[in-house]
Design a protein around this nucleic acid. Structure first.
Lengths: 362, 362
DNA sequence: CTGAAAGCGCTAACAC
DNA sequence: GTGTTAGCGCTTTCAG
C-alpha cells in the first residue's frame, strides 16, 4: 500500500491535524462519560459487560468512544481491576527458532481469546529469569508460561502465593507437581539413541547445551545414556561435548569431539541448530555424512529439512504445544477449578539422510 | 502464609509449596514505609532518586524492601508517573530470524539503560499492526520501534499527537519525515543486482515477499530493476515471483519460476530464507549451483553460511541497527531536543558460493 | 438499569 | 531531608 500526500488530510471522513502539539492528552473515561451524558460507571460497564447496559445508552456511549478515539488506560485498569488480560512468558532467548514457532502459536491462541502476550527472555541465566518473572508479575501478568522445570523452588512458591497460574512447557515430567504442557525429552532422546545403537553404532558422541539449570538438555543426554544402558553398553562411554546454542558452537564441538575421539561413528546433538553446525563441520573435514559419520538433531525446526543430506531428528509438535499451553492457562483463568493435567505430547522420529549404519570396520 | 510440612512435596531434596491461597497480596509501598518507619514518599524517593535521601534512612528502607520482597506495582506507577520505562516494538513476526537478531540487540541496549521492551507482532497485516500500536500506547509505552515506513499516515499523526517518540527501522529513506535507523534497501539490492548483471546474467528471476505494505520488499525489487535499467536492460524483464516468507515458499517459487522461464540463469531472493528454499529446490531439480544457476539472498542471517555452497547475500548489520535504534529512542526520551538524524547503516555484499558467471550459452 | 463514591498503589508538588 | 496530601484513570460495591 502506498499512501500519497493527499491522503493525509482526511481519513475516514474525519479531519486529522498534521504533526504538532506534544500534549493533547488521551481522552479518559470521564471525557467519554461527559460526551455521552452518562456516568463513568456506565461507560465502564459498556466496555466490560455491555449486556448490563440498556441498548440506547450503550449506543450513545459507543459513539462517544469512537468520536473521541478513546482507548482505556491500561495501568489504571490494572490498578482498579487487578486483572490485565495479559499472559507473561519467559523464554531463554528469542534468537532461536526452537522457541519462536511454539511461542507464535501460543500468542495466536491467546489473541483469539482476547489475551495479550508479554514476552521476556532470560538468556538461559537463572537470576535473570527470576527477575523477569517478578517483572512480569509486577506488570500484572494474570498467568505465566515458563520453559522447563529447573528453577529455584522459591519461585514456584512465590507464584503460588500470588495465585498466578503457571504452566511449564517444552518439558513434561509426571513426577513434578507443577502443571506442564510438554513432552518427555528423556524418552524421545532415548528412542532416537536406541535407533542409532540398533544400526550398529558403538562409539557415539553427544553435543549438548549447558545442562546446568536446563532440564531439557539434561534429559536429552540422560535419554541417550538410558539407551546405551538398555543396549548393554556403558552409558559413560557416551562422549560428551558441552557448548552454547548456535550453529558455530555445534561446528566447533563437532571438530573437538572428532579430534579427541577419532573412533566416533555417530554424533547426536541436543538440538537441530547444533546438529546443523556439526554436519557442516564434518563435511568441511572431508567426511561424508552418513557414510563416514552419522549426525542427529532434535526439534525438527525448518532448517533440518534443507541440509544435504536432510537431518535425522526428533519432531516436536511446537505449534500444537504452544496452542495447548495457551488453552491450559485460559481454562485455568476462566474456571476456578484447575483443569485436568494435559497428557504429554508425542514426538516422532524423523529418519532422514544424516543417519545410517556405520561403515563396517576393517 | 505459613505452610505446614505436610503441604510440601519433596523434590530433589528441596521443599516445594503446592498451588494454593490466591490471596496473599503483594506488599505495597505503604507496607514498606511502615516497616521502615518512614513515609511512603520517602520510600518512593529511595527507589526513584536514592541520592535525595539520607544514607541511614535509605538503608532502613532498602532492608525493609528486601525483607518484604517488595516490587513496585507497575500499573500504579504508570498511572501516577505517566511514564513506564517501557519501549514498545511492533514487528511483522517473531518467527523469522530476520527480526530476531536485531530485536535481541535492541532489547539488550534498552535493558542496559533500565528500559523494558514490549514486543507485539502484526503478521504483516496493516490492521493488526495498527491495533498493536494502539495497544502498546494504552499500555503506556514511552516510545515505539516500527519496522519500515509503510502504514496509514493517521498512525504517525496519532503518535505525534500523543508525543510518542517513534523510530522506523530496517529501512532508511531520507525523503521521509519519520526518523529512522536503518539502511537503504533499494541501494543495497541495486548493488547486488549490478554485480549479478556484471557477471553476464541477463535472464534474472526475483523471488519477493508480498510487496503490498512492505516497503523493504518493494525497495529490494526496485533496486534490482534500477540495476537492470542502468545496465541498459529492460527493467520489466525481471521475472518476478511473489510469495510468503518461508523456506518452503522460496522453494515453490523457485520451481515455478524455472518452469515458466527456463532461460533464467540467476534467481535473486528478497531474503535469505527464500534463498535457502530456492537453492534447495534448484538442487532438487538436478541443477548445479552456481554452474547451472546462481542464487542470491539478502540479510546474511546465520543460515546463509551453512548452505552448500554458501549463500551470496547482502550483509545487514542487524545487531548494530538494533543497538542504534535503541540509542536513538533513549536519547529522544532523555533530552527534549530531538537527536540528530542517524545516518543510514552500510550494508556489504557477501560474495559466496551460490553466485558465478552463467555458463556460456551454446 | 444507572449514578455516586470509595479506593487500587504510586508519584510529585508542596510544606515543614 | 522528610512528611502530607492530592490526584493519576479506572472498576466496583452500594444505593436508588
Amino acid at each position: 500500500m502506498i499512501y500519497s500526500r493527499s491522503d493525509v488530510h482526511v481519513i475516514q471522513g474525519i479531519f486529522v491535524v498534521p504533526y504538532k502539539s506534544p500534549d493533547a492528552p488521551l481522552p479518559t473515561l470521564a471525557d467519554v462519560a461527559e460526551q455521552a451524558g452518562v456516568s463513568t460507571a456506565t461507560v465502564s460497564r459498556c466496555l466490560n459487560s455491555p449486556d448490563k447496559v440498556g441498548k440506547s445508552t450503550r449506543d450513545k456511549v459507543m459513539s462517544a468512544v469512537h468520536e473521541l478515539g478513546y482507548s482505556p488506560n491500561f495501568g489504571a485498569r490494572a490498578l482498579a481491576a487487578k486483572r490485565t488480560n495479559t499472559i507473561g512468558a519467559v523464554i531463554p532467548t528469542m534468537d532461536n527458532a526452537i522457541f519462536a514457532r511454539g511461542l507464535q502459536a501460543f500468542e495466536e491462541a491467546l489473541n483469539e481469546n482476547g489475551l495479550t502476550l508479554l514476552v521476556a527472555s532470560s538468556n538461559y541465566e537463572p537470576d535473570r529469569e527470576e527477575r523477569q518473572i517478578r517483572t512480569l508479575i509486577a506488570r500484572g501478568a494474570d498467568a505465566l508460561l515458563l520453559i522447563g522445570y529447573d528453577r529455584d523452588p522459591g519461585i514456584y512458591e512465590f507464584l503460588s502465593r500470588q495465585g498466578i497460574p503457571t504452566v511449564v512447557s517444552w518439558a513434561h515430567d509426571p513426577t513434578q507437581p507443577q502443571a506442564s504442557v510438554g513432552f518427555d525429552n528423556r524418552a524421545a532422546s532415548r528412542d532416537l539413541a536406541a535407533h542409532v545403537i540398533s544400526l550398529g553404532h558403538r562409539n557415539i558422541g553427544y553435543i549438548t547445551a549447558n545442562t546446568a539449570s536446563n532440564d531439557r538438555a539434561r534429559d536429552r543426554v540422560r535419554g541417550a545414556r538410558d539407551a546405551m544402558e538398555q543396549a548393554g553398553l556403558d552409558p559413560n562411554g557416551l562422549y560428551l561435548a558441552q557448548t552454547r546454542y548456535s550453529i558455530m558452537n555445534g561446528a566447533e564441538a563437532c571438530g573437538a569431539l572428532l579430534t579427541k575421539h577419532p573412533d566416533i561413528t555417530a554424533i547426536m546433538c541436543g538440538n537441530d541448530v547444533l546438529a546443523v553446525g556439526a554436519l557442516r563441520q564434518a563435511q568441511k573435514l572431508g567426511l561424508t555424512v552418513p557414510d563416514d559419520i552419522s549426525i542427529t538433531g532434535f526439534d525438527d525446526i525448518e532448517i533440518s529439512l534443507i541440509t544435504e543430506p536432510a537431518l535425522t531428528t526428533v519432531h516436536v509438535p511446537h505449534r500444537k504445544m504452544g496452542h495447548a499451553a495457551a488453552r491450559y492457562l485460559i481454562d485455568t483463568i476462566l474456571s476456578d477449578t484447575p483443569p485436568a493435567p494435559v497428557a504429554p505430547l508425542t514426538t516422532d522420529l524423523c529418519l532422514r539422510g544424516t543417519l545410517a549404519a556405520p561403515k563396517s570396520q576393517i
